[in-house]
Amino acid sequence: MESLLIPLLILVAVTVAVVLATRAWSRRQQKPGGPEQAPPDSAELARAAAARLSEDEHRRLYALIAQGQAMAAIKLYYEVSGLGLRASRDAVAALAAHPQPFRSAPQKPSEPEPDDDETPQRFPYRYRAIASKGDVTREVSSNMLNDEIYGRIRTLAKSGDIEAAATALTKHSDITMKQAREFLALLDD
């Protein structure tokens, strides 16, 4: 009788495991979308979750995550996001698994930006633009120029709007209008 007890226990354990697996599979099939619907990408969920937070909320949430206070982090996210408890839990888990830096929401300008900035930005380097034709060479050196601004100036000059290009060049450098016109006249056609 004892020799049959161990195989009988194994048979019962296997039967219970098969029944539990079958139940889990049938529940999974009953969910909307079925098993072929993939869960959302955890990294994408983390990016979306971080976008819902202000800078202070972001800092507080990651402080709680770093301290291992998952329940407090979920509660905080639940309160500030307006999402449900399960969505808040998933968002905090995604944020913990894929840390996100704080990114402020991009502000949309109310008016279209003009080609030239109102006040030129100063860069930590000095930009040199050189134009030459034949034996004549001119150079403009400024810490208010960069490739993008100089490209816009060249585009204006090549399109025939020399005055706008000269104005932009004088605005982003320390040269006169006359010097700017001379420089632009030397640009390749």
Rank of each mutant, 00 (worst) to 15 (best):
V16W: 10
S173Q: 05
L53V: 02
P114I: 06
E148C: 04
M1V: 12
R154Q: 12
T170P: 01
P114Y: 06
I74L: 04
D116Y: 05
T170M: 12
A168R: 01
D161L: 01
A87R: 08
Q107A: 15
V12S: 11
T167Y: 05
P40E: 11
A38C: 05
R60Y: 08
A43I: 08
R47C: 05
L5F: 09
A131F: 04
S142P: 02
G151C: 00
L4W: 11
A165F: 01
A48F: 07
D147H: 12
R154P: 03
I65A: 00
A94D: 04
D174L: 06
Q67I: 01
P32D: 05
S88K: 01
D174H: 11
A73Q: 02
G82Y: 10
V19Y: 15
A66H: 07
E139S: 15
L11P: 02
S159N: 14
D161G: 00
P106Q: 11
G33T: 09
N143R: 13
S173G: 06
A51M: 10
G134I: 03
Q100E: 10
Q67V: 02
L169Y: 00
R122F: 07
D189I: 09
P112G: 06
T15N: 09
T176L: 07
L169V: 08
H98F: 15
Q100I: 02
D189Y: 08
T15H: 07
V140K: 01
V140G: 03
Y125K: 07
A168V: 03
N146K: 04
F102Q: 01
R28K: 12
V14Q: 05
D56N: 14
A49L: 02
A46R: 02
T119R: 15
A63L: 11
K75T: 10
A180K: 03
P40V: 10
H58P: 02
S88G: 05
D189H: 12
A185Q: 06
N143I: 01
T22F: 11
E57W: 00
P112C: 07
A94I: 04
A70H: 11
P124L: 07
D115E: 13
D189K: 14
V140M: 00
P106V: 10
M71E: 13
Q30R: 15
E163S: 11
A49W: 04
R52Y: 03
L20M: 13
A168Q: 06
P101N: 11
A49H: 01
S26V: 10
R47T: 15
V140L: 06
R59Y: 08
L95I: 08
Q67M: 09
R122V: 14
D161W: 04
P106G: 06
V92F: 01
L169A: 02
F123L: 08
L5R: 12
M177H: 09
P124W: 05
A24Q: 12
S88V: 06
A50K: 00
K108T: 15
E113S: 12
D116N: 14
S81L: 06
I74Y: 00
K171N: 09
